[in-house]
Deep mutational scan, measured.
Amino acid sequence: GSMEQGFLPKGWEVRHAPNGRPFFIDHNTKTTTWEDPRLKIPA
């Protein structure tokens, strides 16, 4: 929902695949990933 959306880094969006699995869109680089960007520790 909109709650989890608010925690994503700037430029990211979460969508759900037809099977219900969430995936993440990085509008900054125009890419998608199954990995939650929030789980990655910034270098």
Rank of each mutant, 00 (worst) to 15 (best):
G1A: 13
G1D: 12
G1Q: 11
G1H: 10
G1S: 12
G1Y: 11
S2Q: 14
S2F: 13
S2L: 12
S2V: 12
S2M: 13
S2R: 09
S2D: 11
S2P: 12
S2I: 12
S2G: 14
S2E: 10
S2Y: 13
M3I: 13
M3G: 11
M3S: 11
M3L: 13
M3V: 12
M3R: 12
E4N: 12
E4G: 13
E4Q: 14
E4H: 14
E4I: 15
E4V: 14
Q5W: 11
Q5V: 12
Q5D: 11
Q5C: 15
G6Q: 10
G6W: 14
G6S: 11
G6L: 14
G6M: 12
G6H: 11
G6T: 11
G6I: 09
F7W: 14
F7A: 15
F7P: 15
F7T: 15
F7R: 15
L8N: 01
L8S: 00
L8F: 06
L8P: 00
L8W: 04
P9A: 05
P9H: 05
P9T: 04
P9R: 05
P9G: 04
K10T: 10
K10I: 10
K10D: 10
K10A: 15
K10C: 15
G11T: 01
G11Q: 02
G11E: 00
G11A: 00
G11W: 03
G11N: 06
G11H: 03
G11F: 04
W12Y: 03
W12M: 00
W12Q: 01
W12R: 02
W12F: 04
W12L: 00
W12N: 02
W12P: 02
W12K: 01
E13K: 01
E13N: 00
E13A: 02
E13P: 00
E13V: 05
E13W: 04
V14E: 09
V14K: 07
V14Y: 04
R15F: 07
R15L: 08
R15I: 07
R15G: 07
R15E: 03
R15T: 05
H16S: 08
H16W: 15
H16M: 15
H16N: 08
H16K: 09
H16P: 04
A17L: 11
A17F: 06
A17K: 06
A17E: 07
A17H: 08
A17C: 15
A17D: 13
P18I: 08
P18Y: 08
P18K: 10
P18E: 09
P18W: 09
P18R: 09
N19K: 01
N19G: 08
N19D: 14
N19V: 01
N19Q: 03
G20C: 09
G20Y: 01
G20K: 05
G20W: 00
R21F: 07
R21N: 06
R21Q: 09
R21A: 07
R21W: 07
R21E: 08
P22E: 09
P22N: 06
P22C: 14
P22H: 15
P22R: 10
P22V: 14
P22Q: 09
F23Q: 06
F23S: 03
F23P: 00
F24D: 04
F24E: 02
F24L: 00
I25E: 02
I25K: 03
I25T: 04
I25Y: 15
I25W: 07
I25Q: 03
I25F: 10
D26Q: 00
D26P: 02
D26N: 11
H27Q: 06
H27M: 08
H27S: 06
H27E: 05
H27P: 05
H27V: 08
H27F: 07
H27W: 14
N28M: 06
N28A: 07
N28E: 07
N28T: 07
N28Q: 06
N28W: 06
T29L: 05
T29E: 05
T29A: 05
T29M: 05
T29V: 01
T29C: 12
T29N: 09
T29D: 04
T29F: 04
T29G: 07
K30Q: 13
K30H: 15
K30T: 06
K30I: 05
K30P: 00
K30A: 11
T31A: 06
T31S: 08
T31R: 09
T31G: 02
T31Y: 07
T31D: 04
T31P: 02
T31Q: 08
T31N: 06
T31F: 08
T32A: 10
T32S: 09
T32E: 07
T32K: 10
T32F: 14
T32H: 07
T32I: 15
T33R: 04
T33V: 06
T33P: 00
T33S: 07
T33L: 04
W34R: 02
W34H: 02
W34F: 08
W34M: 05
W34G: 00
W34P: 00
W34E: 03
W34S: 04
E35K: 11
E35M: 11
E35D: 13
E35W: 14
E35A: 09
E35R: 13
E35Y: 14
E35I: 14
E35G: 06
E35F: 15
E35S: 08
D36T: 01
D36K: 03
D36F: 04
D36A: 01
D36Y: 04
D36E: 04
D36S: 03
P37S: 01
P37T: 00
P37I: 02
P37L: 02
P37F: 03
P37Y: 03
P37V: 03
R38E: 03
R38Q: 02
R38I: 00
L39T: 12
L39D: 09
L39W: 10
L39F: 09
L39V: 10
L39P: 08
K40L: 13
K40G: 11
K40R: 10
K40N: 12
I41F: 13
I41N: 13
I41L: 14
I41V: 14
I41M: 12
I41E: 12
P42T: 11
P42R: 09
P42K: 10
P42I: 11
P42L: 10
P42G: 11
A43I: 12
A43H: 10
A43G: 12
A43N: 11
A43C: 14
A43R: 09
A43M: 13
